[in-house]
């Protein structure tokens, strides 16, 4: 007998630069443990998941993260009164701050989450990677904080081109000269504030890992993927599951050091010497997490069990050589459905 659960999921934007929501929902639909009713939580009218009635049972609009925590709280409690949500799985970087802050209040009304703490969330920011590398013994490309043009001049003198100038939160620009570095510094400072980050270029093979931690340092699942085709937005359009003992070992070491609770994506690069260096930590499942499910590790299902404080077995094995290939699909939507989501905020 499967356990019946109501699960709220965000990031229904299965577009060309997709959010992970639909992949998470498909994984939960595949679960042998749970029989789920999916409540889709959408920010915009046209998030495709709203109209995918075979995957999402009911959708509600929720206020944008910038509106503040209190507005989110009010809306979720309003939805909870009607739907009795058991577990909530937020999947956007930008919304996590608010959901993390509200986790205890959600718990008090019977909504479970399994999220990092505010400081764990903060510590995995790219400005903190060097520090994290030191603690965990993980190799991280050399990184510097840039606050002034003098800092840019110094780093241009000390390092060889090209290297990366990265925004505090998003964006990376590869620069080949001091002029380009200056321009990138100004652009990224204006967009994301200070400090701007300089990261040494590491040439090599990029590989990604989707994983889940139990919050005590144990890795309950980890699947590695090599991108096969990348869109002009830098997103994987197809990829293949691979196995590399060292890569999985490094990933587990990091999860141990972070004591990470819940899903995460690690972006690694294998340098010329064959060593893995950590480029970035994304604090939620990636949009390709369904590949892990298809390979025998259902991380979203594990996350739901963790949220419900049920015992979860670590899974080591997974099928390698399985591909995912994304495709575009034109969903046909009746104007009545569009009317409902735009005028009632639900569908």
């Amino acid at each position: 007998m499967k356990i019946k659960l109501v699960i709220g999921v965000t990031a229904l934007n299965a577009i060309d630069s997709p959010g992970p929501g639909i992949a998470v929902i498909r994984s939960l639909r595949d679960s042998k443990k749970f029989d789920v009713r999916i409540i889709g939580l959408a920010y915009e009218f046209l998030e495709p998941g709203i109209f995918m009635h075979d995957l999402v049972d009911k959708s509600y609009q929720i206020p944008l993260p910038g509106t503040g925590m209190e507005a989110l709280w009010q809306r979720i409690t309003q939805i909870h009164e009607r739907e009795s949500i058991d577990v909530l799985i937020p999947n956007f970087d930008a919304e996590l701050f608010n959901f993390i802050q509200l986790a205890d209040r959600f718990k008090a009304i019977g909504i479970q989450t399994f999220l990092p703490t505010a400081s764990q969330f903060e510590n995995r920011h790219k400005t903190n990677l060097p520090q994290l590398g030191k603690i965990s013994g993980i190799a991280v490309p050399e990184t510097r904080s840039l606050n002034t043009l003098k800092d840019v001049r110094n780093v241009s003198k000390d390092w060889t081109f090209p290297f990366f100038i990265k925004g505090r939160y998003y964006d990376a620009i590869r620069v080949f000269s001091e002029e380009q570095a200056n321009a990138a510094f100004h652009k990224l400072a204006a967009a994301w504030g200070y400090p701007v980050i300089a990261q040494k270029n590491v040439s090599g093979e990029e590989v990604n890992v989707t994983a889940i931690g139990d919050g005590k340092g144990n890795t309950l699942g980890a699947v590695a993927m090599k991108k096969m085709y990348v869109t002009d937005k830098g997103k994987a359009w197809s990829g293949i599951s691979i196995a590399d003992e060292d890569l999985l070992l490094q990933s587990k070491k990091l999860i141990q050091a972070l004591r990470w609770p819940g899903g995460l994506e690690l972006e690694w690069i294998k340098d010329a010497n064959g060593n893995y260096q950590l480029l970035e930590i994304n604090p939620r499942f990636p949009a390709w997490v369904y590949l892990a499910t298809g390979c025998g590790q259902n991380h979203p299902e594990q996350l739901v069990s963790l949220a419900l404080e049920q015992p979860v077995e670590a899974i080591e094995a997974y099928e390698t050589g399985k591909l995912f290939v994304r495709f575009s699909f034109d969903l046909l939507v009746n104007i009545e459905d569009f009317e409902k989501i735009t005028t009632k905020g639900e569908l």
Partner: peptide, 19 residues
Amino acid sequence: IAISESGFLFDPATGHSFT
């Protein structure tokens, strides 16, 4: 122009919708 009780308007000539 179609006007529904919910305050939703659709202009089939232009494809624009309004509330």
